[in-house]
Design a protein around this nucleic acid. Structure first.
Lengths: 363, 363
DNA sequence: CCTCCTCGTGGAATCGATTACACGACTTCG
DNA sequence: CGAAGTCGTGTAATCGATTCCACGAGGAGG
């Protein structure tokens, strides 16, 4: 591969001049500039980013460590992060932790070794020494979605409290009293917060949340299945299961189906995180939608502010309830109009560019 | 950040010795070794991968350029690629082309600038000059899923011919005669091959595939919706729609639902690419499953063989039909047992790490 | 006409590693 | 006892860029 020396030789100038042309430094004669450009073209020269990074001590690269790429929520987050970063001239390297702390550490270490300019993390656990140390050592860092309490790092996330309250109102309005939750790992903020918000909202309606109705999941489908089976084996099974993420909801649905239960008539289901497929599941699943694209963009901006020396800001955006049919039909609703219609449009608009006038069938 | 010089100073040796310890070169005294290790620990030293790459001219990094991360098929592919690469000591940088040739080019260029050791590509189009040039210039490269005819690069992919023939048999067995297909872009191999295989299989059953029943999609949900609406507006709409990927199937389902049609009684649906959600859609969707994990692993191995100087091999693995209910109930089926049950188990087993018999061809 | 800028340019140091080569201290053996 | 290895180590070149500094040519101003 041609190097800057070859270009310099071809153009009959020094490497310094070539470098100046490449970084369009003002003090280069027109003559030299054109000769260099011609040489670049004939040699098909491309600057070596590795060498450049070594010298300038910046890689124009962001690291993104997420808990699980296979989770559509994180996939979308990753996509929006990459998009926003690209618009600002940065690349993104994604590390998939698969909800495993040691894998998360592996990726953080690798990214740090590569001297990425900044790190976006959605921590799998309470924070490994490595990550804490990196934050303290001054690595530009921003938490997305989940965070680690007590660490001085900006956080970009959605607040689900209001939406969870709406969900509880919806459930209670439908007459449900025995509600259960499949929680995420207690070590994650989203894992514990969602349970707490749910419990508080239920308390407002005088509905208890007994320990037997709190199942411990790990944000993966399999745990949703396992926990749901536990619920169904209870002498008095719950009437509603609320899964703290979409994968555990998938697992819950599997478990219910395996028992031959009908949703929502036999048991109701709701999920945190909305995804396109929830429109088409049987039945369509009531879910809490996060403004994923916004979150990704805000996180990138916060991180790049930090990198470029501007004060970064934490951001909290509201999540919202999207009512579908998995918790039962709302009797108050005017039967003339499709109850889901409005909400659905809002949701789609929220999700991105694709406009989708989705209409519910009565199947 | 501490550099190798700092470590050398701390340990009272030269940088050469430190480097030798780091790369565990045999000729270092035990005394020096322990002193260096201690220094590394007290300074929290980590070698700078950028500097190392510049010197050794290898990054131990693979680039993966895929057509659309939001497509669960590619997400899973990306995941398995990263996993396999990590096991062999390589990192992966993912570039998402979003089915846009210019974005694909952007990523290929960026990855090449970073001097990745090899490139895994699922081309969005017929191949940009940039990519062709890179392949010709000797950049280690392997195509996954899709490929570019006439380019001398190993290909790792699934062959859907047999599964498509099984699908056609299934459809004809159910009495369907008017079948339509939502094709992918003709510029992609998967786009054109699937149509051709479908046409050929139908011909064996004496069923024609008129032009009006071939819709042009772009592998995105929106196009599936648009094409399906076109089909439904036909004076004689098809009885079956076969979508060439899972996202277009989602769009098709949207369109059918919007018209108030029942699946499969009013119209049947099948898809290429199986995903976990198809089990839970209404109705569960009959699909052709690719051995995604295997594909990712095989691709990484082929690429690393190429990088490390061993002869790389093209690999073709079989895809398989997973029958669910979206094309209608099979009348031959014994009504006592759930027809979906058995097949479902097969599918799950297929999706996991279990290895499928590999069929190889030399490219 | 001489001095002082400005401008374009090149030489060389530098970033943080790896590694060829040289060298001194020891061991081994004729 | 001297020649020939062997072993551990250090010096310095190198990878491909960026950038400080010096320098010569030419223009402006006194």
């Amino acid at each position: 591969m041609a190097s800057i020396k070859d270009v310099a030789a071809e153009a009959g100038v020094s490497v310094a001049t070539v470098s100046r042309v490449l970084n369009d430094h003002p003090s280069v004669s027109d003559d030299a500039r054109t000769r260099v450009q011609a040489a670049v073209r004939t040699l098909g020269y491309r600057p070596n980013a590795v060498a450049r990074s070594l010298r300038t001590d910046q890689t124009r690269t962001l690291g993104l460590v997420i808990s699980d790429v296979m989770n559509p929520y994180f996939t979308e987050l990753a996509r929006s992060v990459e998009e926003a970063a690209r618009a600002l001239g940065y690349s993104v390297i994604i590390g998939n932790a698969d909800e495993r702390p040691e894998l998360q550490d592996h990726h953080v270490r690798t990214l740090l070794d590569r001297r990425i300019d900044g790190l976006l993390v959605s921590p799998t656990d309470g924070g490994s020494p490595l990550m804490l140390e990196a934050a303290r050592a001054g690595t530009p860092m921003v938490f997305v979605d989940r965070w680690i309490p007590g660490v001085d790092v900006p956080v970009v996330r959605a607040d689900g409290r209001a939406a969870i309250r709406d969900l509880v109102a919806h459930l209670c309005g439908l007459g449900h009293r025995r509600v259960a939750i499949i929680a995420g790992p207690a070590a994650t903020t989203t894992g514990s917060e969602r349970v707490q918000a749910f419990r508080e909202a239920l308390a407002e309606y005088g509905v208890p949340l007994p320990d037997a109705y709190i199942g411990q999941g790990d944000f993966q489908a399999e745990s949703g299945r396992r926990v749901t089976e536990g619920f169904l084996d209870l002498p008095e099974p719950p009437e509603v299961v609320f899964a703290a993420d979409n994968l555990m909801a998938l697992g819950a649905l599997d478990a219910m189906r395996a028992r031959g239960l009908r949703v929502p008539s036999d048991i109701a289901l709701a999920a945190f995180d909305d995804i396109p497929w929830f429109v088409h599941t049987d039945p369509p699943v009531t879910a809490i939608a996060q403004p994923t694209g916004e979150l990704g963009r805000a996180a990138v901006h916060a991180l790049i502010d930090r990198i470029e020396g501007r004060p970064p800001q934490s951001v909290t955006l509201p999540a919202r309830l999207v009512v579908r049919r998995s918790c039962g039909e709302n009797p108050d609703q005017n039967p003339d109009q499709n109850p889901d219609q409005n909400r659905e449009e809002n949701r789609e608009e929220n999700r991105g560019k694709k406009q989708t006038p989705v209409q519910r069938s009565t199947s």
